[in-house]
Nucleic acid binder design. Structure first.
Lengths: 132, 132
DNA sequence: ATGGGGCTTGCCATGGGGGGAAGGTCAAGG
DNA sequence: CCTTGACCTTCCCCCCATGGCAAGCCCCAT
């Protein structure tokens, strides 16, 4: 399998696949012409990586998960720990965004949004945040 | 005012302030020794930028907001448009994270998390996502 | 053999700074 | 006057996870 075929099948850009090889996530073979020669196992790994990335796992998390994926004697507790840690980061990020959303929504709702220059949004950004 | 004082007062790292000058968000004066000489207006702008950034506005959004902030004849509608656009991005990001959260939570809940190797999390990452 | 696509490497760019080196400046103490 | 140490300056490389582009092979069909 050449890179464009495995890219189409894994749903990843060829550039990303080359990058994943460069950082050691996959190790495809090489043909005599220098082309990467992907096996089915490489394709599986790339599909795995694509799904893990789409769930927001970092590359380093992916490296860990891939090692666990390949280790037939792994403990599921190890996998669960990685996943739960990531869930914590997701929850924290959601909370942060929701706080921004609340603050900004309040400012937007207070703004007339007409031709006049008076603007509570700019006012809110210019002054220290009130805690009440 | 030297950079460390304005950094402390604006709550921004000195490095960030130099960066903001480099990209033209602020234009502090210079003393004869080459040191940046910040005025009160520079401090206000930096505090404004810090709050806008903490609400998740991009640097380019900040540039726009700062221009509106300085334009006494702006229309509040222009400000509101920028803020609403940003609120849309925030909502999209929250939705994306919540989708990840839902998928990952389901996998984590299905995982025993013990010493055995069977792991629905890895299974879910290895197989194409079921839509049910 | 010629053309057009696919493959390779390599370098530069993003956003929003962080880290740290090399060197000039300033204020206080001996 | 000299030193010390804190502060300031510019400069360049680093992060993540790619995207874009260019030069130069390679393969297949005509």
């Amino acid at each position: 399998m050449n890179i464009s075929e495995v890219a189409a099948r894994a749903g990843l850009p060829a550039k990303t696949i080359r990058y994943y090889e460069e950082i050691g996530l996959i190790r495809p073979l090489r043909g005599s012409n220098g082309y990467r020669a992907f096996r089915e196992t490489d394709l599986h790994k790339l599909a795995f990586l694509g799904r893990a990335r789409s769930l927001g796992f970092s590359i380093e998390d992916c490296r860990t998960l891939l090692a666990l994926y390949e280790d037939r004697s792994r403990a599921s507790a190890d996998v669960k720990a990685v996943a739960r840690s990531h869930l914590g980061r997701i929850a924290a990020k959601i909370a942060e965004l929701q706080a921004m959303q609340a603050t900004l929504t309040a400012l937007v709702d207070a703004c007339a949004g007409d031709q006049r220059p008076d603007c509570p949004i700019l006012g809110g950004l210019a002054l220290p945040p009130a805690q009440g």
